[in-house]
């Protein structure tokens, strides 16, 4: 049953990645683009995890962990820059 559901879940996540990309490219304000990029990161983690199930190997999860870490650091740095005008004061 999981084997049949897995491609459907991957397709749904790909669709949500496209919607996030639309917001990232279109976003009226720069903060909309930051939100779109952050959601893109979170959904990319899920796509990588589903790919790990598909390939039956947990080797790829290191990339997902890296994306989770770097995505959070990037979001905080960008919003910090917008609020304070500087990343590290």
């Amino acid at each position: 049953m999981t084997a049949t559901v897995l491609p459907i879940a991957l397709a749904l996540f790909s669709l949500s990645l496209l919607l996030n990309l639309y917001r990232l490219l279109r976003g009226p304000d720069i903060i909309d683009r930051i939100l779109g990029l952050d959601t893109l990161n979170v959904n990319a983690i899920a796509v990588i995890v589903l790919g790990g199930i598909y390939m039956d190997s947990s080797l790829i999860f290191e990339a997902a962990l890296l994306i989770a870490l770097m995505g959070f650091v990037g979001t905080v740095a960008m919003t910090k820059y917008l609020v304070r005008g500087d990343v590290i004061e």
Binding site: V5, F13, L19, N20, L35, T39, A46, L50
Partner: peptide, 21 residues
Amino acid sequence: LIALLLLGGALVALLGSIGLA
């Protein structure tokens, strides 16, 4: 259970992304 979690998770995440768009 795994199939339900994967499918439900994908649907809810798609809902969130539709909201974002």
